[in-house]
Design a protein around this nucleic acid. Structure first.
Lengths: 305, 305
DNA sequence: TCAATAGTGTCTATTAGACAGTATACC
DNA sequence: GGTATACTGTCTAATAGACACTATTGA
């Protein structure tokens, strides 16, 4: 029997059912996407011998309307009724950076009831990583309303509370978001509850100076994910230009992981992921460094194929 | 200046703006949660000496109405306008299993335009892991419309396609979903595209006999996540009863990872996560096995505290 | 006694951390 | 020459895989 001929308790076939379906019996939330667009820039150097320091950047836009007018928010917007979540995310990415086809992944979907004072908004967050050399100079530079901010997170407080069923770890994460003129301050309390086997994580915003909505939470979450994933995937290469030195690559790992790495071990770790070239840095004031490129085939050893 | 006194381009304060805000200028999608509720049951034994085999179970509900009437779907439902995503997921979990406070995590949010023939539906999927001994016998057993299915996935085809920019790996994953009476068949093609540095993953349903909507995709995704997370977290313990033997624990790892493990290495790996007790299995037809319980403090070595 | 599982000891291969030591440009 | 970075060699500690070996029960 053809399955579309099945009838339901009201005796309707699927075709009849769909014709009569009232999509508005439930009040619907709005759905948005929020983009976390990260890149890495070089800082200026004072000492001709020193390497330029790298810094992790996040793109934020200044809100022109209520709510949170004149505060800074993650770029994003409403998902249209006829586009998929991924399409909406790609559209936002393109409109902010003018680049297609860069690394992007869905992070988490934020669904608290009172996230937005206008109306109920559920927001899917996506993280994108961009090589600075692909960036249109225009994007976020002359446009007053979209700017790249330095971003640095640090755990400033950490405590453990034992109770009968298990224990709880509370961390206060301070995130410094700044550029030459503007400094935004964010503190997020991350509470991990271990009750027997059940683990829950909660995030509460303690301070959110200049950051709109609950975006402080989302930024904290994204930084944690980035830290995790850089350890066991190759996503860091999405932040690198076509040619890079291993020292530069190491610097990118270091600013994201927020700790110093030993060069010997680092080089061993990334050896298979890169291909050496014949090019070297020059005018460096010290020994030149070999340029490498990403080896797209490095996973071959890991695959079953 | 108080920030709520700022005015926008129309000269409105935040209060005035919110009063006039029309939440319906954009057509809104519906939002649902879909629950992947996993558990592990013992199979029956024929040989008195043999240990009962474990099998991974997934709870599915039979659809009573169009669309996909009489097919099997993940339990779930619409998110009410005044409840958060997590609350909706907990509510569904409670209504299906009658248990609170079990392990639950958000997996992924599915946002394709044509996921549901009725209307645009975006669905956040959550995975929950339940110890069988906590399960109400009622839930999913006498209720004809909610049943536990054995679930087993296997890669039945794997190929690699090289192109100039990189390569693509296509896997066909066959998922067998069955119980004593019913066998549902699912095949999902997972396409991983490596183009330079950019990685994309696509999932296409090749076959979905008896499974409603795009739930075949979601199930495949969840099984992969479960496989990954069991290796580097302690989520497996959420599937274990209060007291268990290390052999049982190993079996659970084996059915989820779908490969055999060596006892010596496995015991080393979990040694810190368990606490031994004075109790032993009996009437086993072979050497008795010590019971262990979960050690909620095992992470202490790993924490900074 | 023996079938089947429980549990341990140890050898090996691999990997990450530590750190000393060598190399090489430019001012 | 001196400074700052580039790069390598090797010792060590920690960990995972392999596998042989011993232990213990009920029928």
């Amino acid at each position: 029997m053809d399955e579309c001929m099945l009838t339901n308790k009201d005796g309707l076939t699927e075709e009849e059912f769909l014709k009569n379906y009232d999509a508005d019996i439930f009040k619907r939330p709005s759905v948005t996407v929020d983009m976390l667009i990260f890149s890495v820039f070089d800082e200026e150097v004072k000492n001709y011998r020193k390497l330029p320091q790298k810094s992790l950047k996040l793109l934020l836009v200044k809100r022109k309307d209520h709510p949170y007018i004149k505060q800074w928010a993650l770029p994003g917007g409403f998902v249209a009724i006829n586009e998929s979540l991924d399409e909406a995310a790609k559209r936002e990415l393109k409109s902010e950076t003018n680049i297609d086809n860069i690394y992007m992944e869905q992070l988490y979907t934020w669904g608290d009831v009172d996230r937005d004072p206008r109306t109920r908004v559920i927001s899917a967050s996506y993280m994108a990583l961009v090589d600075r050399t692909l960036l249109d100079i225009k994007a976020g530079d002359d446009a007053e309303d979209a700017l790249w901010f330095d971003i640095k997170s640090r755990v400033i407080e950490e405590k453990k509370i034992n109770c009968e069923k298990g224990y709880t770890i509370e961390k206060v994460v301070d995130i410094n978001i700044s550029n030459k003129e503007i400094t935004l301050g964010v503190k997020v309390k991350v509470i991990e509850i271990f009750e027997g086997r059940v683990v829950k994580v909660e995030r509460d915003i303690i301070e959110s100076k200049g950051i709109a909505f609950d975006h402080a939470k989302i930024i904290e979450y994204a930084l944690e994910r980035l830290k995790n994933k850089i350890e066991y995937t190759d996503i860091a290469f999405n932040l690198m230009p076509e040619l890079f030195t291993l020292s530069e690559l190491q610097q990118v790992y270091e600013i994201i992981l927020d700790k110093e790495l030993l060069a010997a071990a680092f080089r061993r770790k990334v050896a298979e992921m890169v291909i050496e070239t014949d090019h070297f840095t020059k005018d460096a004031g010290h020994r030149p460094s070999k340029f490498y490129r990403f080896n797209p085939l490095w996973r071959n050893g890991k695959d079953n194929l």
